[in-house]
Design a protein around this nucleic acid. Structure first.
Lengths: 149, 149
DNA sequence: CTCGATATGTCAAAGTCCTGACATCGCCAT
DNA sequence: ATGGCGATGTCAGGACTTTGACATATCGAG
């Protein structure tokens, strides 16, 4: 096997490095969430609900970057484990606002700490200014890509 | 549906924005590659082979952030379409060095231009210094996450 | 030389996620 | 009021990827 012979042009492309960082983060999160019996989408769902109770399934799906169908099974799973509750009937339209149970809040507390430790590790050695610059630059990239053409 | 009522804390987390940017890039690449009948992993395979002919299946898998099995089916598909060739017997060990055919190079040329246009669009408005800073910061994040503990 | 460790390619099975489609419900202009 | 339009929740169906396992081939230590 040729192990890192020479750095080719691909590794210097913004898109490539972006994907690489995203995969590394995903794997690291997966590793720390596994002991808590949570997948990344499940954690994302809990975190979103912790910060904004009453979000609907579609809202959660958008926030976690998955489809409504995927979030729906996540939600049903968490509901079955007693971490999330949803009303049987829709108070308005068809939206079923979800909320954390006490057990859900406890689970979220542990998971959030684990994920925050990963973020801290990832950003180690970065000055607040560089970290803010990273956020701003990424936000700019997102805005640029969101434009239709 | 609650449409962007107020910006919550989640959207300011580095990991969240990183994921968001990666998804936006993935979708944009998907959109421009679809007319060429190429998926993102397929394009990644072609691009890697274009820059480093003779890469093995396992090398390509690592470079495209997928498993060997997934890259194997990608490779077989591209082989069936006449874009990639692999020797029937392994010249050394079990590695089957892959290479682009002329048709593969042609296909790659068009795909590469399309993807480069997406990267250009994504990085629009960024000074070379900010772009380099983004690359450096992301590289730092990747290094930090690669450490074992 | 021999044996263990590592890497590769490949097969089978499972899981995950997305695409497509449908019925329902609220909103807005006609 | 009413009919189009968009949004939501839900139900299969299928595509894609990963996990697990196995045989083979190289390399290095004993």
């Amino acid at each position: 096997m040729e192990q890192q012979d020479t750095v080719g042009p691909v590794e210097n492309a913004v898109g490539y490095v972006l994907k690489e960082a995203a995969v590394a983060l995903r794997n690291a999160m997966d590793a720390v969430l596994r002991p808590l019996h949570l997948t990344v989408p499940q954690y994302a769902c809990l975190e979103l609900l912790g910060q904004r109770p009453g979000l609907s399934n579609a809202d959660l799906a958008r926030g976690a970057f998955v489809t409504r169908q995927s979030m729906n099974v996540v939600l049903h799973g968490l509901e079955g484990r007693g971490l999330v509750t949803r009303p049987a009937t829709a108070p308005r339209g068809r939206e079923l606002p979800a909320a954390l149970t006490q057990a859900g809040r406890d689970h979220l507390h542990a998971a959030s700490a684990a994920v925050r430790s990963i973020e801290k590790k990832m950003c180690a050695g970065l000055t607040p200014a560089r970290q803010q610059a990273l956020l701003d630059t990424l936000a700019s990239c997102i805005r640029n890509l969101a434009d239709n053409p």
